[in-house]
């Protein structure tokens, strides 16, 4: 025991400068991530601006009971989980598909061009995506109404008043902006595979399809698992910009666009209701944590190599 401690002490000394170098990063995490967690107590308080965070009166779980009594609880959980599952499934299937296609392209120049172009949507802000979507969907001037539906003799559609279109629109926008990046992640994995598998397969006379289904897909499994676990951790989070700025915070669309994040923001900024806003945020964090822990332990049982921690 004593020698072990001594050993550790020696290691500590050996890495002393590395600890020092990394110290600012840890201090930053404490300030930026850990200290605000104290604020989660506000979820159990009736926040008063006059009294501040610490002196506001407690209100037990009232903030939570309200949340579940309102119709928004159902809607925001349904939307958050629903969209995330949709994005997860569609996104990964599509990304793997594109990655495999990319891997098959023989011309290096074409390959590079495709990679460059499909990543572009990943580079721009959600504010800007909101501008782009509006250019397409604006009732009066939008590209779809003016240049697609009108020449076809169809009635223009009031996109920003019909919630029923928005699950498709949001999914489409999300796919558009994220498929490139996800594809590159998979593609990067694919080109790292041992070439000898494929060479052997070719010798055995395997078709392209057989190579994909027998070699590429099984080899991708660990990557898929990691990406899915990470996505599960964010199952209760949503991209605020996608659900707030892209639909331009329009009241009629709330039933299709309210996620936990937009609810939290609106409860805060429109109703000035810090307690309830935080109750929703608190639930979001807790649930995300639980889900990822469960997913990880399941994976650890089935396939220990792929577990995240």
């Amino acid at each position: 025991m004593k020698t072990k401690n001594k050993h550790a002490g020696k290691k500590l000394y050996k890495y002393r400068f590395l600890y020092l170098l990394a110290l600012p990063g840890f201090v930053y995490l404490i300030i930026n991530n850990y200290m605000p967690m104290v604020g989660l107590v506000l979820a159990f308080k009736n926040y008063s601006f006059a009294k501040g965070m610490l002196h506001s009166p407690w209100c037990g779980i009232h903030n939570f009971t309200y949340l579940f009594n309102s119709k928004w609880a159902k809607i925001m959980f349904r939307n958050t989980i629903g969209y995330n599952l949709l994005f997860l499934v569609l996104g990964n299937i599509f990304a793997i598909f594109v990655a495999i296609l990319l891997g098959e392209i023989r011309s290096e120049r074409a390959k590079k061009t495709y990679q460059t172009l499909i990543l572009i949507p990943h580079l721009v802000s959600t504010v800007l995506i909101g501008y782009l979507v509006f250019a397409f969907l604006s009732y009066k001037n939008g590209f779809i109404n003016m240049s697609l539906l009108e020449p076809l003799g169809k009635e223009p559609v009031n996109w920003y008043t019909e919630p029923k279109y928005w699950p498709f629109i949001l999914t489409l926008v999300q796919m558009w902006r994220s498929f490139g990046f996800q594809s590159i992640v998979y593609f990067a994995t694919i080109i790292g595979f041992d070439k000898s598998y494929y060479e052997a397969a070719v010798v055995d006379g395997a078709t392209t399809w057989q190579q994909i289904s027998r070699i590429t897909l099984p080899l991708l499994r660990p990557t898929v698992i990691i990406l899915v676990i990470m996505a599960l951790g964010r199952m209760f989070a949503s991209d605020f910009g996608l659900f707030y700025q892209v639909p331009m915070n329009t009241g009629t669309l709330y039933s299709a666009t309210t996620t936990i994040d937009t609810f939290v923001y609106r409860a805060m900024m429109q109703d000035h209701d810090v307690g309830r806003s935080l109750a929703a945020g608190f639930l979001q964090s807790i649930l995300g944590f639980v889900v990822v822990t469960i997913a990880n332990s399941v994976v650890r049982k089935i396939e220990p190599e792929s577990a995240l921690y």
Binding site: N69, S70, K71, W72, T161, G251, T252, Y254, S255, D271
Partner: peptide, 14 residues
């Protein structure tokens, strides 16, 4: 009250 105002925000303008 809050539940009602949310509904008003969603339906009334249209």
């Amino acid at each position: 009250y809050t539940a009602c105002t949310a509904i008003v925000a969603e339906y009334r303008d249209a």
